[in-house]
Structures are given as C-alpha cells and as structure tokens.
Amino acid sequence: MKILVTGGLGFIGSHTVVSLIEEGHSVVIVDNLSNSKKEVLYVLQELTNKEIPFYQIDVTDNPMLETLFSRYQFDGVIHFAGYKAVGQSVEQPLMYYYNNLLSTISLVNCCKNFGVKKIVFSSSATVYGNNKSPLVETMNLLPTTNPYGETKAMCERILKDLHASNNCFEIALLRYFNPIGAHTSGLIGEVSIGTPNNIMPYITQVGKGNKEFLNVFGNDYPTIDGTGVRDYIHVMDLAEGHVAALEGLTPGTHIYNLGTGSGTSVLQLIQTFETVNNIKIPYKITSRRSGDIATCYADATKARVELNWIAKRTLEEMCADAWRFEKSLQFY
C-alpha cells in the first residue's frame, strides 16, 4: 500500500516509516519540521535503502494538502502530526486546540474528498483521564487532565463521527502509552528541539553531560516509591503496532491500547537505565507537574487478540537503545 505519514520525521513517525517499508509498503512523508529535523529523512533512506518522497507541509494547510492528495493515490494515512507536550498544553491551550484539531480536520477532509478510507490515528492514553489502571478500551472517557489529552479525545470523536457519516471508512484509534528507546542501529531516536518534554531524552542528556541533573516531578504520589508510574513501551514495538493496525483494518472504528501492560515508576526507570548502561543519573525531586496523574498503564489484551500484536522488547532494551542513540548523535 502507498501510505501518507504525517509527522513522519518525528520520533514515533520515523520509526513507523521504517517498519512500513520493511513490510513492503511505500511511504510519503509530510512534516512541518516544527519538532523534527530534515536530516532524519536522509537517515531513513539509508536505513531502508529507499528514496522516500518528503514534503514540508503543515497539515493545517488544507490547500497544500489537497495538492499532495491529487498527486498521489494513497491507500491510507497514518496521522502523527500534532503538538504533544502535556506541560506546554497547559500553558498554551489555544495553540494545542488550533493545531491538533485543525490538522486532523484538514487531513480527514482530504481523505473524504479523495476516497482514502484507511486512517490510523495517533491517540494517547491521556484520553482516559483519571480512570483507574489497567486502562481498557471499553472505559468511558473521563474529562482529561490537560488540553493535550483533550485534543486527542476530540480528534477521536471527529473520526468516530466521520465513520458514522460514511461506514466505508476503516479507522484505527491507537491509544499508546509512553514510548522510549530507539532503533537498534542507533541512527534514529528521540530528538528534542530545545528542552526535552519527555523523560528519556532528558535522562540521556544528563548521562551525556549536557544537563546537570534530571527533575523528578513529585515523589508523593500513591505509588510504589512516590513517583509517577507509567507504561513504557519500546518505540519499535509501537511502530510495529501501527503497521499491524493498518494491515488489520476493516470498515468501522477500532480502538486499541498499545502498551506493555505493566507500570514502571520514574525512579525504577532511572535505576534500570543506570544499571544497563553503567552510568549515574543525578536527579532532584521537585513539585508535581500540572496535568500529570499518579499511575497510567495499559490492558493491551485487545491488540494481542485482534491484531496478533504484543510489546516484545524489555525495559532494559529500551534503556540500552536510547543510550546508544544519544551517544551516536552527530548532526541533530
């Protein structure tokens, strides 16, 4: 299939591009480079030994997107493009609502106009709000704890309504948890523009000496050691989950959690990273971060049963691969 990947030079998008090509699909990438680097494209072409068409387009730009759809006959789209930092969404909610909602509406409108029925949407476990873990796809969505999560929940509703209006659409809503790690080659991984918003690139930058210490936001949660518990999943497992969802699509709206099914605290993650990579990560406890919750991990049974997909890689592999990528960083 010929697949349009929006946000395809970002962390999860770039790894999914590799998995798609490995499974025999052809890919066109759209990215506005607001949180990614064009150099990633050249690495992807080296990794896959393929020329990958790339267009620097903002997905909110409907006329530019329509021009692209008229140039290619896409069989499906995977939609990653969007702002993704929980803390930033609390500080700048209007920016998140405008970008994340408008980009999805623009893309879906093109899909409708050009007869592209297969849509895989990058959603998030944040849509569950304060539901009790393990989180199951059948849960009613509570009000989310931050604008980022709210934009994901609203986009899910947009896509559900699209299918309700035209039952030919085949839609997968992938609610994934906390991707970390990197490609085993060390050539692609999580690159942060400015201060990292996610924990692993912050850990690796501390390990490399680029930052003095890691801030741990809160140690008074009702968890094993007081720090937040998350379901960390290797980014390559997540990428393979997107391919499984795409290839398994049938008419309807299908919701899947993509996670390991177990939780790890922030301190446990730090300790695992230190052990695996034989390096010390200094950290300081600071106040809780607005929009965060205590515990969040998946019930991933549905993806295993319906997509024959499971997260195979261990936390140790995630830590080793992330550190390998950080050490190899040259041009980012």
Rank of each mutant, 00 (worst) to 15 (best):
K50V: 05
E51C: 03
Q88C: 01
Q45H: 01
Y72F: 15
Y72I: 06
F69R: 08
E91A: 13
D75W: 01
L94N: 09
H15G: 10
Q73D: 07
S70V: 00
V40P: 02
G76I: 01
L33Y: 12
L33N: 12
Y83D: 09
N35E: 13
M64A: 15
E23H: 13
L44N: 06
V40D: 03
T16V: 13
Y96E: 05
E66H: 09
M95K: 13
G10N: 05
Q56H: 11
K38C: 05
S70A: 13
L94M: 14
V17Q: 04
T67I: 00
K38N: 01
I52K: 09
V17P: 07
D75E: 14
S89K: 03
D58M: 06
Q56I: 03
G82D: 03
F74A: 06
E39M: 06
P63V: 00
Y97A: 07
P53L: 09
S34L: 13
V27R: 03
K37Y: 14
T60A: 14
I52Q: 09
V86N: 00
I57Q: 02
I12L: 14
V59F: 05
D58I: 04
K38L: 14
Y97C: 04
S26L: 00
V40F: 04
I78V: 12
E66S: 09
T6F: 03
N35W: 12
V90K: 02
G7V: 08
P63Y: 10
S70C: 00
Q92Y: 12
Y98F: 14
V40M: 07
G8T: 10
V90R: 01
T60N: 03
Q73M: 04
Q92H: 12
N99W: 04
Y97D: 01
Q45N: 04
T48K: 11
G24I: 13
Y96A: 05
L9S: 09
L41P: 12
